[in-house]
Nucleic acid binder design. Structure first.
Lengths: 244, 244
DNA sequence: CGCCTATTTGATAGCCGTCAACCGGAGTGG
DNA sequence: CCACTCCGGTTGACGGCTATCAAATAGGCG
């Protein structure tokens, strides 16, 4: 078994929801690809461009964004290691949003056709891709609820809970804290707030003892209260499920 | 060729983006299903429930919604005739949102397994499903931008443009008007506004001569200005594309 | 140490929500 | 045929959450 493949994070992520066989896993590990390192704020894809190769995130954080005509930016999704970044455009020939590195990242570039082919050849992998897309869509719907119907305070708390829950699965949340390398302006763009208001809000959470911060690391001092403030229920992340 | 199948709207919709062969089309038309009529506001699926059979919308309009803990509702998607309504949950065993009839509707219920099987057996159909899901996800991202970064006026205009564009494809937009059978409260829930503010906003669009209304029918008096006000670009609907 | 970016803080303004009342049309029943 | 009812639409007054503008502080990196 070839566990040394750079694509191992993808295998782990896909295995989260579907029980892939060894043949499936090995097929993924053997995908033709090239590893590439990119600096923070590099673009992987720009809106209106034609999607090319598909990137799989191996290390770092990536965000998806759209711009309104008057220049306001909206971050519409965050992606973490193991996430395939181009399932959204696998069969479309025009990108409807941009994909950009939040931190320095490492990705594996896989030719589009290869990804399509492997899905066609391995039904379990096709299903894993489908589930991944479904969960991504579910998160987008929750974000819609978040920006549309929750106050700034709830919104911020909810995002912090979501990131913790998603990172937790990857053992990247140590005890009670994790690093969220987003500027307050980026947080604002994800939450549809201004950076000024993000600052006031995060500060109020801190002063009430719900979280504490050191550099860009965030510590949950009172996890229960945070979930309560956010109204956070993790069912939309579909974490528990092992195949359907 | 069995063009009399009730599932013809689904064939037409899937054919929009992929060139399906006759065998594919006939396979869809022959799907085991039962047609059912439901009254407005009937639930097709409730959040937290286990998804059962998959519904295909044949006639009428359906919306997807989520509720925040304090009872605020957010409509996260609209679906029109031909849309499969359960691709979002095809491989998930817990619904993350509710699906409800906006108008009286007619649906075709297809067993989940049958839908999965046909996708596995006919690659072109699997691709059509994937594309449909990708477009749905793209629309969700645009809604996120819409509620997050646009003013009430822009938001409303954008929704009106989107519905017109999506209905137009089905020749349900006569000349310059179409019926949008949503109450202002429902519009508010889709736009993250209150019904009061929807009223003021729609009224101002009307007084400026951009639209006119008669009952629930909306007429575009000045299509160009509407698009301009909304900052509407239809590329996110991926309408033009014929296969990838 | 100096520059640059990110964070923090204060004052002010405005969009939209909230509350409350009234209107108007469609269906119902007398 | 008309009164009643009910739901949705309309309107006004007021308030609050968040944006905007501006400036000072802090932190990271050369």
């Amino acid at each position: 078994m070839n566990t040394a493949s750079p694509l191992e994070p993808l295998v782990r992520k896909l295995n989260r929801h579907v029980a892939l066989g060894t043949a499936d896993c090995d097929a993924i590990r053997s995908l033709r690809h090239s590893v590439r390192d990119l600096p923070a704020s590099a673009y992987l894809l720009r809106e209106d461009d034609k999607p090319g190769d598909c990137a799989v995130l191996l290390h770092g954080i990536v965000f998806r964004q759209k711009m309104s005509r008057n220049g306001a930016r909206q971050i519409v999704a965050l992606q973490f290691p193991g996430d395939p970044l181009d399932l959204q455009h696998l069969f479309l020939d025009c990108a409807d949003h941009s994909v950009q590195a939040l931190t320095d990242i490492r990705v594996a570039m896989v030719p589009r056709i290869i990804l399509r082919d492997i899905a066609a050849a391995y039904p379990a992998i096709a299903r894993a891709f489908a589930i991944h897309s479904e969960v991504d869509a579910s998160i987008a719907r929750e974000w819609l609820l978040n920006t549309g119907r929750r106050s700034a305070r709830e919104r911020l708390a909810h995002l912090l809970c979501e990131v913790a829950a998603r990172l937790d699965r990857q053992q990247q949340v140590s005890n009670e804290g994790y690093e969220l390398p987003m500027t307050q302006e980026q947080l604002g763009d994800a939450l549809s707030l201004t950076s000024v208001h993000v600052n006031r809000t995060i500060r109020s959470l801190e002063q009430e003892g719900l979280i504490s911060r050191h550099r860009r690391k965030i510590f949950f001092r009172d996890w229960a209260s945070m979930r309560e403030v956010a109204g956070f229920r993790d069912s939309y992340l579909h974490l528990g499920q092992q195949a359907a």
